[in-house]
Design a protein around this nucleic acid. Structure first.
Lengths: 114, 114
DNA sequence: TGGACCTACCTTGCGTCGCAAGGTACTGTG
DNA sequence: CACAGTACCTTGCGACGCAAGGTAGGTCCA
């Protein structure tokens, strides 16, 4: 059960993968970079153990493409880019997200006036 | 992997339980009633196999209380009510949800202008 | 040269959850 | 008495988050 401390853990579910897609939409990025960027988002913080398997799944699903490139200092990096079907999936999520968000707002309320 | 058909399945994760809490916030409700009400929400549809175990978890977590009552026609119903700590959890979710929602809007965009 | 450290990748194991399918039982109707 | 409707719950499977553990390339400095 999601006690209060783990609340945001399961909130991320189903959203994180599309945040990743959005993150590589305009620019190729590599795994560790993505992990660090999510670390800056308090509502979305996710560790290596979450991001790397997620990137593999997105690659297998054909939504991401990857190519190796050398690092200016350190081991080589695997850069990810959005594929055509990845872009389509992201677009589809955007519309799905809007209606989902509205439904939740309506059902649980946000403290604002209805 | 969440293909497009299962997209909303995992979106629900982490949200559904609080929609349930919100649903019994102002009025006691029983399981089948909750299932039917979610059936009317296209973004949240969830079946018995999801709702009943969820209700049990919420009860074990101390967020819901239940009492049996006879039905005007049919087998007895188990009515659920929000406990004090359930109410606190729901309030906590409401603030968490608002910031989560904003983060996702910002990261994936919604098609609206930034 | 060699040790310490950083960066970068990935896997293993555990626990949780959604959900289709299957199961039990009470009630009213023909 | 059979049947259909209502209402509850469980089982088994697959997917996922994530802490922890593992490998390896690169730089720095003594």
């Amino acid at each position: 059960m999601a006690d209060v401390a783990q609340l945001s853990t399961s909130l991320r579910r189903g959203t994180l993968e599309f945040c990743v897609l959005a993150m590589v939409e305009t620019e190729d990025r590599y795994g560790n970079e993505i992990v660090r960027r999510f670390g800056d988002e308090p509502s979305l913080a996710a560790s290596e153990g979450t991001i790397y398997p997620l990137l593999s799944r997105l690659r297998r699903a054909g939504w991401l493409d990857s190519k190796w490139a050398e690092s200016p200092a350190g081991p080589p990096r695997r850069y990810y880019a959005l594929t055509l079907s990845g872009r389509a999936a992201l677009e589809h999520f955007r519309t799905e997200w809007v209606s989902f968000r509205q439904t939740v707002d309506r059902l649980v309320g946000t403290g604002e006036v209805a």
